[in-house]
C-alpha cells in the first residue's frame, strides 16, 4: 500500500481545523472545572443555544445576503454578539443555579448542571420551532436547520485535485481561535483577574480571606468560558452547515473528551486535547470508517488515562494529608 501524502496532509488539515473548534469549547469546560471542580454539563448545550442565537441574528439582520468586506463585518458582529449572549447566559445560570450551591457536595452541583442542560435542550427545541424564515418554512421543530455559508469554503491554497487544500473557512477558524487562546493565556497569567482566578482555584477560602470576591471571580470565569463557547458555536455552525437542538451533546462530548485527554483544569491541556481529538477523528474518518470514529476516540481516551491518569498535561494531584 502506497502512502498518499497529499491525502494524509489533507486529513491533518481538516483534523486541526475541527480540533481548534473543539479546543475552544473545551476551554469552557476546563476553566469551570479548574475553578469549582464542576463538570459543566450544560456547556455543550449552551453552545447549541449560541448557534441558534447566531442563526436568528442572521435572519434578523439579513447577514446571509452580505458579501465581501461586509460579510467579514457580519461574521465579526455574529461572533461578538453570540459570545456576549453565551457569556451572559452562563453568568445568569451561575448566579441562580450554581452560586447557591457553593458549599454543597460536588455531585449536587453536577446534577444541577445536568438539569440545566435539559432545560437548554428544551429551549433549543422551542427555538427551532419558532416560525422564522431563516429556519426554513415547514421544518419541524426537531429538524436540523441550515446555517448559511457566510464564510465560503473557497480554497486559498491548492484547490486542484491532488493538492492539499486550505480554505477561507480554515483560515477563519485559525484566525478566531488562535488570538482568543493567546488572549486567554495572557489574561490568566498577567492580569489581576487572572491572578484572582488562579488563587480561587487553589484555595477559595484562603482567596476570600485575602479579600478576593470569590463569587465575582467565579462569575467572571463562567462568563469567559461561556463567551469562548459562543465563539466556538458560531464557527462550529459555519463549518458544519446545519444546526439542531441535539448538537450540544455531540459537540459537548467531543470538547469534554478533549478537556479530559489534555488534563482537565489545564488550559494548554484543553488546546492540546482538542487538536489531538480533531486529528484522531479525521484520520479515523479518512482511513477507517466514520461510524467507528467515536469508538476509536473513546478507546484512545481510556488507554491514555490508563497510562497517564491525570491526562496529558494535567498535574498529578498530591493528596492533601
Amino acid at each position: 500500500m502506497e502512502l498518499d501524502v497529499q491525502y494524509l496532509l489533507q486529513q491533518l488539515v481538516n483534523g486541526l481545523s475541527n480540533g481548534m473548534i473543539s479546543a475552544l469549547i473545551a476551554i469552557g469546560y476546563t476553566m469551570v472545572y479548574g475553578i469549582i471542580e464542576l463538570i459543566n454539563w450544560a456547556h455543550g448545550d449552551l453552545c447549541m443555544l449560541g448557534a441558534f442565537f447566531a442563526l436568528t441574528l442572521i435572519g434578523a439582520l439579513g447577514i446571509g445576503a452580505w458579501s465581501g468586506p461586509m460579510a467579514a463585518f457580519g461574521v465579526v458582529i455574529l461572533l461578538l454578539a453570540t459570545a456576549g449572549f453565551c457569556g451572559s447566559l452562563n453568568l445568569i445560570v451561575d448566579r441562580f443555579a450554581y452560586r447557591p450551591l457553593r458549599r454543597a457536595p460536588k455531585l449536587t452541583l453536577l446534577v444541577t448542571a445536568i438539569g440545566v442542560s435539559f432545560i437548554f435542550v428544551n429551549l433549543g427545541l422551542f427555538w427551532g420551532g419558532l416560525p422564522m424564515t431563516v429556519f426554513g418554512e415547514g421544518n419541524a421543530a426537531a429538524a436540523p436547520k441550515n446555517f448559511p455559508a457566510i464564510v465560503p469554503a473557497t480554497p486559498i491554497l491548492g484547490g486542484e485535485p491532488g493538492q492539499v487544500t486550505l480554505t477561507v473557512r480554515d483560515l477563519m477558524i485559525a484566525g478566531v481561535t488562535m488570538p482568543l487562546m493567546v488572549g486567554l493565556w495572557w489574561l490568566v497569567r498577567h492580569t489581576k483577574l487572572g491572578k484572582a482566578m488562579r488563587a480561587v482555584a487553589q484555595n477559595p477560602t484562603a482567596a476570600s480571606l485575602m479579600g478576593i470576591n470569590t463569587d465575582r471571580v467565579i462569575g467572571a470565569t463562567f462568563f469567559i468560558g461561556g463567551a469562548l463557547g459562543g465563539f466556538g458555536s458560531v464557527i462550529y455552525a459555519i463549518n458544519n452547515g446545519t444546526i439542531g437542538f441535539q448538537l450540544g451533546y455531540r459537540a459537548g462530548m467531543d470538547a469534554f473528551t478533549a478537556a479530559v485527554l489534555g488534563g482537565i483544569g489545564s488550559l494548554p491541556g484543553a488546546v492540546l486535547g482538542g487538536l489531538l481529538i480533531g486529528v484522531a477523528r479525521s484520520l479515523s474518518d479518512g482511513y477507517l470508517e466514520a461510524r467507528w470514529t467515536p469508538t476509536l476516540v473513546f478507546t484512545i481516551l481510556i488507554l491514555i488515562l490508563v497510562f497517564r491518569p491525570s491526562g496529558l498535561l494535567g498535574l498529578k494531584s498530591k493528596e492533601k494529608v
Binding site: 443555579a97 447557591p100 450551591l101 454543597a104 457536595p105 449536587t108 452541583l109 446534577v111 444541577t112 445536568i114 438539569g115 440545566v116 442542560s117 435539559f118 432545560i119 437548554f120 435542550v121 428544551n122 429551549l123 427545541l125 422551542f126 427551532g128 420551532g129 419558532l130 421543530a141
Partner: peptide
C-alpha cells in the same frame, strides 16, 4: 400547529427544572 402545543415537547424542561429545584431545596 405550534411547538409549544404538544405537551411532550415540555418534558425536558419539566425534568430539568425539577432536578435544579430539587438540588437547590432538597439536595
Amino acid at each position: 400547529g405550534s411547538v409549544f402545543g404538544s405537551p411532550n415537547n415540555w418534558k425536558f424542561l419539566l425534568f430539568g427544572l425539577a432536578l435544579v429545584l430539587m438540588m437547590r431545596f432538597k439536595p
